[in-house]
Amino acid sequence: MLRYVLTRALSLGLSLVVASLVIFAMIEVIPGDPASFMLGLNAQPEAVAALRDDLGLNGSLVTRYLDWVGGLMTGDFGISYTYRVPVAELVLERLQVSLPLALYALGLSTLIAIPVGMFAAARQGRTSDYAIMGATQLGIAIPNFWFAMLLVMLFAVQLRWFSAGGFPGWDEGFWLAMKALTLPAVALALPQASILARVMRSSLLDVLHQDYMRTARAKGLSIAQATRHHALRNALIPVLTIIGLQFSFLLAGAIIIENVFFLPGLGRLIFQAITQRDLVVVESVVMLLVFAVILVTFLIDVAYAVVDPRLRRRR
């Protein structure tokens, strides 16, 4: 088990190094000089020179890369050019919206999808299965930002139960903040839940046809008992992968939803940074997101080993 975790951790470290190189290179290849790019075409040469100095662009590639990575590791993400505040501060502030939103949406989608997927699998080939599968097809096909607009039209414009957007901040009270995140979370969760329910269903159906399910039935377990004791844990293995991928997607993929609801989250930060050419923010936040994805992948690999004993002693 320890060896398995260590090997995975090593591969996590390697991926991070490669990813940081890729991101660094990506920012480097952006046409023209980052400083003049950030300031636009009509910038004064003095301003450009000053910014270059500011950004440390006058050093060699290697020192700049090492400075950046070294900064990342000590929590120094640089200073945002447009906001004039440390990027780390910005990110922390935005994470207070994005992280709860991602978790909220993921929680919703998991809580809905797993029972629904199980139910559909149990009713395979019957009307209720077809109905659920049809509904999930629709759920996948609806663009989440459009669904968000529909939610706004219904719950904010018509019924006036929720506000159409904005975030009061956690200081205004937990429930108020959660309420502001509800419509965005529902909009984000719907397609995710649809995908997850389908994965759950097909994974469970796969497992239900395994030989060991027949063995369990031959021992005297009812279908429900056999499903509970033997199928679920095996069926959850692929579901886990999808949940992990969805978490990372929700963290960054909320960009558009955050725009619909005017939420001051990480996605909106990076979107604005890109459009305002604030490359310091872009570079560091993208790295942070990649780190999150790789970390989640690592955690899922470890979770695999917990669920599946076959992985523990291999390698």
């Binding site: 027949r214 063995t215 369990a216 039935r217 004993p309």
Partner: peptide, 28 residues
Amino acid sequence: DEDAMCAIRGRRVSMIFQEPMTALNPVK
């Protein structure tokens, strides 16, 4: 009925199958 059969299977009539490699739950 099914409940009564569950009480029979494994207790009064049991069965083993051809493919032992896949007949056991890998995670238990």
